[in-house]
Computed example of a mutant assay.
Amino acid sequence: MSRRAWLQPCHPAQLVIGLTIWSIWFVAMYAGLSVACQLAAPAEQQGPVNWLSAGLFLFTLLVLALLLALAWRTGRACLQRRKSADNAAGVNYFTGYVSSVLYLAAAVATLAGGLPVLVFAPCS
């Protein structure tokens, strides 16, 4: 078995990778916000339109794109495995399907957590 087998689209590790990426994003986003507000807070008069909000939203969009790309990759592999007549295809199909749904759930949670930076001033 390969050392990188867990990167395959239908590997059971895919079930936790999306939510792990989301949790890393969540911690980095709000820890970064706290540190930036302590070290170099933007002027409160700028409201939500400042360098900090732009950087946080760009980070959110990058993580969102990663999660959507992983969902697409896993879903596509899942459908290809379903068409095969292999006995293990059923388990791989289930794992791929659930992984795709979890990637999409993590993407929605990322977007929902990142949208407030467009509306609220970051350090107020």
Score class of each variant (00 low, 15 high):
residue 49 V to I: 06
residue 7 L to G: 12
residue 83 K to E: 12
residue 99 S to D: 02
residue 3 R to T: 12
residue 118 L to K: 07
residue 17 I to Q: 14
residue 76 R to S: 10
residue 123 C to A: 02
residue 14 Q to Y: 01
residue 83 K to H: 12
residue 46 Q to K: 02
residue 110 T to L: 00
residue 88 A to I: 11
residue 45 Q to V: 10
residue 62 L to M: 14
residue 96 G to V: 11
residue 85 A to F: 15
residue 112 A to C: 04
residue 83 K to S: 13
residue 93 Y to M: 06
residue 72 W to R: 15
residue 104 L to M: 12
residue 48 P to E: 09
residue 40 A to L: 07
residue 73 R to S: 10
residue 77 A to C: 03
residue 121 A to K: 07
residue 43 A to S: 04
residue 19 L to N: 14
residue 47 G to I: 02
residue 67 L to Q: 10
residue 32 G to W: 02
residue 81 R to C: 00
residue 12 P to R: 05
residue 29 M to A: 10
residue 109 A to S: 09
residue 113 G to M: 05
residue 20 T to R: 01
residue 33 L to P: 03
residue 97 Y to R: 03
residue 35 V to R: 05
residue 23 S to V: 13
residue 72 W to S: 13
residue 63 V to H: 11
residue 122 P to K: 00
residue 76 R to V: 11
residue 119 V to Q: 05
residue 98 V to Q: 07
residue 24 I to M: 14
residue 46 Q to M: 09
residue 61 L to P: 03
residue 114 G to H: 05
residue 35 V to G: 00
residue 59 F to N: 08
residue 11 H to I: 02
residue 43 A to E: 11
residue 98 V to R: 06
residue 55 G to L: 01
residue 93 Y to K: 12
residue 73 R to Y: 11
residue 121 A to H: 07
residue 90 G to M: 11
residue 29 M to C: 01
residue 75 G to W: 09
residue 32 G to N: 01
residue 68 L to I: 08
